[in-house]
Amino acid sequence: MRYTLYLSGEIHTDWRDQIKRAVEMNGLPVDILTPNTDHASSDDCGDELLGAEDKAFWKDHKAAKINTMRHMTALKRADIVVVRFGDKYRQWNAAFDAGIAIALGKSLIVEHAPELTHPLKEIDAAAHAVAENTDQVIEVLKYLCLDY
């Protein structure tokens, strides 16, 4: 069986690259989808693709709608969704993706440091696995891909 994995969440560390390398090194039958992780192009895509806006609200609104097409398509295609919450910034987008994944009936793996357990308790309660680091996420993926 081949899995499609969507890697959502924080963009300030190399956790996605770690998972991609582990998938390749272990020969896991996994295809990986990601959001746009380049802040500038994600924030500016509406202006760049559809024309500049005078007000920040409309600039953000257009970019969010375009980015949502990518996120929703990936969430719908995914068998497994991994959402990583980092310690920088409040990651509302990641929380939203986790909620959508659960609403769509997707398998959800959440990753965050122990310090974030209390603020993420509702998301953790809905997740199928809660990891404290990327190595644990990789171990879960390896287990899911075992040949029976």
Rank of each mutant, 00 (worst) to 15 (best):
R2I: 04
R2N: 14
R2E: 05
Y3Q: 07
Y3N: 03
L7S: 06
S8K: 08
G9K: 00
E10M: 07
H12W: 05
H12N: 15
W15M: 07
R16G: 13
Q18D: 09
K20C: 09
E24Y: 05
M25C: 06
P29F: 00
L33R: 12
T34P: 14
P35R: 01
N36Q: 07
T37A: 06
H39L: 03
A40H: 04
A40G: 10
A40T: 11
S41T: 15
D43Y: 04
G46I: 05
A52H: 10
D54N: 11
K55Q: 13
K55R: 15
A56I: 14
D60W: 10
H71W: 03
K76W: 11
A78S: 13
V81R: 05
V81S: 08
V83A: 13
R84K: 14
F85H: 12
G86E: 01
G86H: 02
G86F: 00
K88P: 02
W92P: 07
W92E: 10
A95C: 01
A98V: 08
G99Y: 01
L104F: 12
G105P: 10
L108P: 07
V110H: 04
E111Y: 02
H112M: 09
A113H: 15
A113G: 14
E115P: 01
H118G: 03
P119F: 07
P119C: 09
L120K: 05
L120N: 11
I123R: 11
A125F: 06
A126N: 14
A126P: 00
E132D: 10
N133L: 02
V137T: 02
I138T: 08
I138R: 09
I138L: 10
V140S: 00
V140Y: 03
L141D: 12
L141C: 12
K142V: 00
K142F: 02
C145M: 08
L146A: 15
Y148H: 12
